[in-house]
Every structure is written in structure tokens, then in C-alpha cells.
Design a protein around this nucleic acid. Structure first.
Lengths: 154, 154
DNA sequence: CCTTTACCTCAACTTAGCTTGAGGTACTAG
DNA sequence: CTAGTACCTCAAGCTAAGTTGAGGTAAAGG
């Protein structure tokens, strides 16, 4: 079974995503496959890790574009080693740290800031501490578009 | 000037958003306005805080839909007091805490997890700790769609 | 008064990340 | 050998959160 490669369906089930999502990722260049004699996709085992990493990175708020860029640092020819993946993830650590720090600042100033009058001001801590991070050119940028918490209740 | 209400342009400039964004928010029911004799929008001062809160909440990753829901808890007739805003923000504190905690778990397990083989497994800490949070029905849900860090470089 | 700037509505377009559907082919189990 | 899945491609659709543009009106300054 896994002897002659993984089929889309199996990868999808194993990774908890739809087949269409795998097609989509392939189209975006995030994963790749070979074809069997009947033109059906066959994957190497490392696709599982790729998909999982995509999912984990997305949870950190990293876009598919950035993930693709990160994946570009992986070796093309050989199967990525543990070390390759470690390198990749360590690049995201900093980003994640920055993001956590930002949310913490936001949390710490939230009550005071929304409650007081400063939120409408240009010098509000929430406003600025975030804007600063949100504009660091290429590099850690956070939560500046869309996504995220849905239906927060309240 | 502010005597007979704020114009869209002034609100936009003051809040650092486009006029079209204010139209959009109004259409979504997040802010509201009255009209002058010539059908132009006029806002009460509290719109400034609303817009600022929207922006702050978005930075936490809260969707406009959730923000609207949260705003529904504000008094309709009278201008919201400081306390009203505090109540609203305290609801988001918990969400923000949950979210920070989740990202921290993700950070702490990132290296180990991406580096090891577990990411493709159903019992991976990253996978599950996040999924659990991502599925708490209505309530804190995090980063499950789109958005976020763009162009992380690396 | 006249020009310029601000505002109005409505519709269409944008990006990300997928999903859905139509129409057709390949595999696999009995 | 024949169902019944699984798979294929391509195009269109969807949601969020806005932005852009066309065509037209209102207000403000000199």
C-alpha cells in the first residue's frame, strides 16, 4: 500500500484535510506528487509532514505564501531530515514569540485602554505597540488582516 | 464642528481608516449614523471609540461578526459608559488569554514536534491542543481560518 | 457665484484559502 | 466482469474584510 506511494484519499484521511485541499496545495506548490500509470497522484511519505507543518503554521497565523517560502529552504532532492525541519521551525519561533508578546501587550492594556478614552487617540498603547509590529516591513507582521477568532461569543 | 456631529471624513482621519471602511462598518451594523439635511452622515462621538475597539479587537484576531455580537451587549439608547466598554473588553480578555496560551503551547512544542515524527499523528501535541481549542463550539476559537502573519520571510 | 473638495449610492473587483460541481476515467471488491 | 468507489480536470462559487470606480449631489471657501 504505502509501498507504491500514498494516494490522495489516504493522505487526506491521515492528515484530516479534504482531497480538494491537497489538490489546492499542490497547485500552490506547497506539496508535490508523481503520477501512476492512470494519471492518479502518488505521494511520498514526507507529504504527511508537509501537510502537518502547513496546518501547524496556519494555526500560528502564517500564510500559505510564507509557508511556501519557508519550504523553499528545504532540500529539493533528498527527503528533508529532522534537522531540516528543525531549521524551518526555528525560523518561525521568533515570529511566534513576537506575536505572543504583542498579544500579551494587548491583553495587558486592553481593559485600561478600552475603558479609558485613549483608544481613539493616536498615542494609545494598544494602537501603537501593535502598529509598530504591524509595519516592520518584511518580517514579523501580525494579525493585520482577516481571519482568526470566529464567533467569540459575548 | 463637532458641535453638530462628526462627518465621515473627520472620523476616518481621526481613526486612521478609509471612508469606505466606515461605510462598510455601517453596512455591517457595527456603527451607525444619522443624516443631515443633505443626506450626509453625521456621527456621535462614541463612533470613535467603536472604531478603535473594532481595530483593537481585529488585532486580537476577532472577526467583525464577533465584534458585532459583542457590541450588541452595549446599551442601544444611551451612550456607552466606561463601564460598558470595560465589560465588553473583559469578555475578550479571556479569549485573548486562551489564545496566548495556545500560541505558547504551540511555541513550546514547535521545535520538538516539527522535528520529531509526531506531527503527522493524530496525537501530536500541537495538533490536538489546538484542535481542542479550535472546536469549543461557540466560544474561544482560534486562528482557524486565514489571516494573520503575512510574509514571514524566512 | 463658482470652483473645489467632500460626500452619496451602488456595483464590481480584490486576496486568501478553500469548496463544490460537472463531466469523465481508473481501481478494486465480489 | 461489473458495481461502486476513488480519482482526474477545470471552472465557478464562497467568506471575510475591504477597496475601487462610476455617476451624481452637497457644502465650504474665496
Amino acid at each position: 500500500m504505502s509501498g507504491d506511494g500514498w494516494t490522495v484519499g489516504r493522505v487526506a484521511k491521515r492528515c484530516g484535510v479534504n482531497v480538494s485541499t491537497l489538490h489546492f496545495y499542490e497547485q500552490k506548490g506547497l506539496i508535490h506528487s508523481t503520477r501512476n500509470s492512470g494519471n492518479q497522484r502518488r505521494y511520498e511519505a514526507d507529504v504527511l509532514r508537509r501537510v502537518s507543518v502547513i496546518k501547524a503554521a496556519q494555526k500560528m497565523g502564517i500564510s500559505l505564501g510564507s509557508i511556501k517560502t519557508a519550504f523553499a529552504s528545504l532540500p529539493g532532492e533528498r527527503t528533508p531530515t529532522m534537522e531540516d525541519w528543525q531549521n524551518l521551525s526555528s525560523g518561525w519561533q521568533a515570529e511566534l514569540d513576537a506575536r505572543i508578546a504583542c498579544l500579551e501587550r494587548l491583553r495587558d492594556s486592553l481593559t485600561g485602554c478600552i475603558g479609558c478614552g485613549c483608544l481613539s487617540m493616536k498615542n494609545c498603547p494598544i494602537y501603537n505597540e501593535n502598529d509598530k509590529l504591524a509595519e516592520e516591513g518584511p518580517g514579523p507582521v501580525l494579525l493585520n488582516r482577516g481571519g482568526g477568532l470566529e464567533d467569540g461569543g459575548h
